[in-house]
């Protein structure tokens, strides 16, 4: 296996890890505030469709992105109303949102475009195009560093860099600001936050809104950057892999990045089965690679390799007086 193949695999690792990372950080904000969210998948899917559809109609990917974020935040608001205002079961609400998105995207896509539940292919300004970082072509001939810079670091779409930037930003917000401290507190002990005179409901809605925004960006990335248009069920379980990554990372931003890169890497090498065979000498079943993120997560959850402890008040609605 040559150097270029390694670079290509790592390159697609980054591209495939990006939607996972955005969704994972989305889940991080929500779950740190005590709201379980298994509706990441649905929100991504809805955002993917809306961003592709609006980008196609308007011809501008930016308007598409905004619309995608809008629909994702709206679904988040629904989740918030169900699980915060009406103290419903957060898991059931998430399941409902997943199905709502899976059904509505196809019904509306069929009505608008008549193409069997997909949007027309996007081109030109209706898509995010790769960004060439400065000096990429000039440095490409420098040994080792040149190809790494030109192939791996440069040439991604804006959202990829945005997602990578979101990691330190999330860390800073959650662990270095007053808002972040309160947000984490509301996921551990909402009663204490309430006693301090801070609104539990307000904080949780803020967390859910951030979650919606990040999921919206993730969905828009799928349809307008990774691929050129929306197809039915295009999120393909990524919301659940992100959830797995979140547990794998034990609800921490930097570890979320590592977990998503690992799961992205697994997806990237699953696309190149012959490379694996070449490197380790025997054939690994693709199905095993597909299942590996989930198996690893179950192992982590089981606590055999370091225990994953979720935020303590996660999943429970907050009732002011008992």
């Amino acid at each position: 296996m040559d150097f270029l193949t390694i670079l290509q695999i790592l390159d697609s690792t980054i591209r495939l890890a990006t939607p996972l990372l955005l969704a994972c950080l989305a889940g991080l904000f929500s779950e740190r505030a005590g709201i379980f969210d298994i509706g990441l998948e649905g929100k991504m899917l809805a955002a993917a469709f809306v961003s592709a559809a609006i980008a196609f109609v308007s011809g501008s990917v930016w308007i598409g992105l905004l619309a995608g974020i809008g629909v994702s935040v709206a679904l988040s608001a629904l989740h918030g109303v169900a699980s915060i205002t009406f103290r419903g079961n957060q898991l059931i609400s998430g399941v409902a949102i997943n199905f709502l998105a899976a059904g509505l995207t196809v019904v509306i896509a069929q009505d608008w475009f008549q193409q069997g539940g997909r949007t027309p292919a996007l081109e030109g300004l209706a898509r995010f195009s790769p960004i060439e970082l400065p000096f990429a072509s000039a440095l490409a001939d420098v040994p080792i560093f040149g190809p790494i810079y030109a192939e791996l670091i440069s040439g991604h779409t804006l959202i990829v860099y945005l997602a990578l930037l979101a990691v330190p930003l999330s860390w800073y917000i959650l662990f270095r600001t007053r808002f972040g401290l309160r947000l984490r507190a509301v996921g551990e002990n909402p009663g204490a936050v309430d006693t301090a005179g801070v609104s539990v409901v307000g904080l949780r809605f803020a967390a859910v809104a951030i979650c919606g925004m990040l999921c919206g960006i993730a969905g828009a990335y799928l349809a307008t950057a990774l691929q050129a248009g929306f197809v039915k069920d295009m999120s393909a379980g990524r919301g659940f892999i992100a959830l797995a990554a979140l547990i794998f990372a034990k609800w921490r931003p930097w570890h979320a990045l590592y977990a998503c890169l690992l799961f992205g890497f697994l997806q990237a090498i699953a696309l190149r089965p012959n490379v694996i065979e070449e490197v380790i000498g025997f054939k690994i079943q693709i199905q095993l690679l597909d299942a590996l993120p989930y198996i690893l997560t179950v192992v982590i959850l089981a606590g055999f390799v370091g225990k994953a402890i979720p935020p303590r008040a996660g999943g429970e609605p907050y009732v002011k007086e008992r």
Partner: peptide, 22 residues
């Protein structure tokens, strides 16, 4: 399209499950 049933299913889950209190 057939997916309308998925929408109905989602709404049933939403209203009988998550929004039960509403």
């Amino acid at each position: 399209p057939r997916e309308l049933v998925v929408v109905i299913q989602a709404l049933v889950i939403l209203f009988t499950g998550a929004l039960d209190n509403m």
